[in-house]
């Protein structure tokens, strides 16, 4: 945490991208203030209005204001992806830590499952899981967690294996420290920076996958203003109302760019050994 604060002061690229991330989050929080209209209010006689001064991003088939929906979409899409990253991070890291620290049979089972997951194209399994369980944001998060946790588990496991042999951990074991205490106090703090960097760098990619599931209809359901879902709805009106497709997609694109830049810079701050 101290390194991050120091990084904000010394690394200008990191400071700048952090501001951009905060702006995105602020947009999500302040959506009700920023939005000119109610994102779910349908006014049929306003259907399919092209972008104008009154409706900057145009309106959709139900006459809903597209700008308001994109702004509210920041809430749905960002909270969705943050939920996803947190779940993947917690599941993956704890599996990896348990696997690395306790070893033996537990390790074998977890690693075999993880071997199985990486020898398989993840997106198709995610589509199958989300699709079979039925489309909802929670099921989409669940599906992507199932296919994404292994990367974190492997990383955490390899780091735990290294740290386990260090003197301070062995000293703690010799002194009769309980496993949970050792994990919490000695091991976790040492692996967290790298794990956080990985998670931060993954936000963009996970966002695209989550939006992809919504786009296919296996994620958020109407009338939720979620970007992937809006693209799905806009796709059907490509000829008559292309603005319905352009703006939500642009929103995803910009958000992914911002998070990818931020992730890269965070890595520079927390892990200065690696350079481009």
């Amino acid at each position: 945490m101290e390194t991050v604060i120091k990084g904000l002061r010394t690394n200008r690229a990191f400071a700048f991208t952090t501001v951009l991330v905060l702006l995105l989050l602020l947009t999500a929080v302040a959506a009700p203030i920023l939005s000119p209209y109610d994102p779910t209010e349908a006014t049929m006689r306003n259907a399919y209005l092209p972008p104008s001064a009154e409706h900057l991003f145009g309106t959709d088939k139900l006459g809903r204001d597209c700008l308001s929906r994109v702004l509210y979409g920041a809430r749905a899409s960002l909270s969705g992806v943050l939920l996803l990253v947190t779940t993947v991070f917690i599941v993956g890291t704890s599996m990896g830590v348990v696997s690395g620290y306790f070893g033996g049979k537990v390790d074998m089972v977890i690693m075999r499952i993880s071997d199985m997951m990486i020898s398989f194209p993840g997106m198709i399994l995610a589509i199958a899981v989300a699709g079979i369980l039925g489309g909802s944001l929670v099921n989409a998060v669940l599906a992507l967690t199932i296919v994404s946790w292994t990367k974190y588990a492997r990383l955490a496991r390899s780091m735990v294996l290294k740290i386990k042999r260090r003197d301070f951990v062995e000293a703690a074991v010799v002194n009769g420290g309980k496993p949970l205490h050792i994990l919490w106090v000695h091991i976790l703090p040492n692996i967290l920076p790298i794990m956080v960097i990985t998670a931060a760098a993954d936000i963009g990619a996970l966002m695209m996958e989550l939006a992809g599931l919504s786009f296919l209809g296996f994620g958020s359901q109407p009338p939720a203003p979620e970007w992937g879902l809006m693209l799905n709805e806009g796709r059907q009106q490509l000829q008559t109302a292309p603005w319905l497709m352009v703006f939500p997609g642009l929103a995803i694109f910009i958000t992914v760019v911002v998070f990818n830049l931020w992730g890269d810079n965070l890595r520079d701050v927390l892990d200065p050994r690696q350079e481009e």
Partner: peptide
């Protein structure tokens, strides 16, 4: 290439379809 890895494929596809196709 940075932009290329950050663009959602399905949106890029729709944009190409819209601009080049339509």
């Amino acid at each position: 290439t940075f932009l290329g890895v950050s663009v959602p494929g399905f949106w890029l596809g729709l944009m190409l379809l819209w601009i080049l196709g339509l």
